[in-house]
């Protein structure tokens, strides 16, 4: 087996000195360019997992290796987007998207000289998610779905090798969400990067991911790994096929199982 791009080896995460165990013995191997999704009950440590991989937190035990190196501090090759688009209200959409270029090297150095060129890149990116013409608008003049698209652009403008998405479409209506699945798949097909997507939506996981990880209730563990071989590019039509619904059904059963299994065990230290 080739070396994984993201490699978690028996990672455990404990918050504070108490025994809030967020993750327990989690092992994952993600190949370069792979699109994975993590699903699991609320509070099982999915967001914590992203923080570990991006180096915003250190594991209590175990190792996190990204791109052949152990993660010891915040990585610099990461793009992130959350359920809350967190755009800066005093910047226009274009300037929001360009924020990473002002921070990440080598763009940061080059930005002054090649501003026009970078601006062109940002405009093209916005156009590719259907936001052409909104470059000069402020985030609060955009709808929630539009803000989320801009947030995606911001996460990808510096061409990160690793994209972390924490329920990015969770706050959107079903139609907008499905539209954004296609957009995200498009961006990923054009320039494959590694994606870790955390989601509550099993259809979203089935539509987007190559591999789906199901986590148990807190403390989170990977209880099931499911390859998703549905042909790409996937479309809205795909979601009505037998294979797709079977997959969603199967995931649904796993989730129900982890929820039920743990309900019989008393919650730790309530």
């Amino acid at each position: 087996m080739t070396a994984a791009f993201v490699d978690l080896d028996r990672v455990t995460l404990r918050y504070g000195a108490g025994d809030t165990l967020a993750l327990s013995e989690t092992t994952m191997k993600i190949a370069k360019g792979e699109f994975i999704a993590v699903v699991g009950p609320s509070g099982c440590g999915k967001s914590s997992l992203l923080k570990l991989v991006s180096g915003l937190m250190r594991p209590s035990t175990g190792t996190v290796i990204v791109n052949g190196q152990e993660v010891t501090g915040p990585l610099k090759i990461v793009g992130m987007a959350f359920q809350n688009p967190t755009l800066l209200p005093w910047r226009t959409t274009l300037d929001n998207v360009m924020l990473p270029l002002e921070i990440v090297e080598p763009h940061r150095r080059r930005l002054r000289g090649a501003r026009a060129e970078y601006e062109e890149r940002a405009r093209a990116m916005l156009a590719s998610v259907g936001l052409a013409g909104f470059e000069g608008k402020f985030p609060w003049q955009l709808s929630g779905g539009m803000q989320q698209r801009a947030s995606l652009c911001r996460a990808l403008i510096h061409e990160p090798d690793l994209l972390m998405l924490d329920e990015p479409f969770g706050a959107l209506d079903a139609f907008t969400r499905e539209e954004l699945w296609a957009i995200l798949q498009d961006l990923w097909t054009r320039r494959p990067f590694t994606v870790i997507l955390v989601t509550h939506d099993l259809r979203e996981a089935a539509y987007l991911a190559d591999t789906i990880y199901v986590m148990s209730k807190r403390p989170g563990r990977i209880v099931h790994v499911r390859r998703n071989e549905l042909p790409r590019p996937r479309t809205l039509e795909t979601t009505f096929t037998r294979d797709f619904t079977d997959l969603v059904h199967e995931l649904r059963n796993h989730i129900s199982a982890v929820r039920a299994a743990q309900d019989t065990i008393p919650e730790d230290a309530r």
Binding site: K51, S54, G55, L56, P74, L75, K76, V78, G79, M80, F82, N84, T86, L88, L99, P100, E102, I103, V104, E105, R154, A155, H158, M164
Partner: peptide, 19 residues
Amino acid sequence: ELRDVLRSLGATRTDILLK
């Protein structure tokens, strides 16, 4: 979350303060 976005880009404390 915004702090996380910036830190994962490798922003320094000064960057975060200024931007």
